[in-house]
Amino acid sequence: MTGTDPAVPKGGKRRAASDLLRRLHPETDSRLLPWLFPVLFFAVWQAGSSAGWINSRVLPSPLDVFASVFRLSESGELWENLRISCFRAVSGFVIGGSLGLLLGFATATSRLLETLLDTSLQMFRTIPHLALTPLVIIWFGIGEQAKIFLIVCGVMFPIYLNTFHGIRSVDPRLMDMGRVYGLGRRELWRQIVLPGALSSILVGVRFSLGVMWMTLIVAEAIAASSGIGYMASNAREMMQTDVMVLSILLYALLGKLADVLARRLERRWLAWRPEFLKAAP
């Protein structure tokens, strides 16, 4: 046939490539594939350390780091620090997230509150919240409040901004439709505004999860007597590079875990979005 659509052979080629991959590795699973590079990374790192190319005083081998996990968990130090860090992260996120959400709802629905609050919030937002650290230490000492306060400041604004934006960008034509079909204020809110704003709110949640860990690392390294960040800065003073590397890896793992949870929520709550719809079998 003449004049075939150029898109057809292209798509065919792409399919052929993934078929080839599958044939080479029949057990290859899309769930395992993302871990290929992390595993490769550790393998090269270990090989470099074993061969003596990497000075273990500068960078310990993965096996050394792994050994430190056992050492620290036997003394209970690791779990205690992990627990306290997670506690700070979660409570800061819950408080800051709720504040951001409520402020977003309030300013998006009331012109008065928007005029009243938005300028102040926007000004406050531009301050890097970590710049408050010295003041916060004076206010709260190095107790729990200091860390939680900093996380609250960091987490609040991404969620506030995205909630505000999400609600404001709900299609007014859908609102008209809802009114015509007899929905009252509460039902409009529940059935149209909230679901319409949800994807934007979740973008804010994912962004603020990143801010949450970052804030925690800094806050714990500067002003803490427990937690993973403290463990790392303490290890620096004793030149325990394995513990320092371990702390970094733990942050990476926790960050990934939080992101996976957020993605799960997206998949569950935004199942209607075309990108999450599976083609009918």
């Binding site: 859908l174 439709m177 079909y181 007899g182 039902e187 059935q191 149209i192 679901p195 209607w272 979005r273």
Partner: peptide, 15 residues
């Protein structure tokens, strides 16, 4: 003007 987050039936049953 269907609500994309509701199934077809729930859209029809709106209100």
């Amino acid at each position: 003007r269907l609500l994309p987050w509701k199934s077809v039936l729930r859209n029809v049953g709106l209100g």
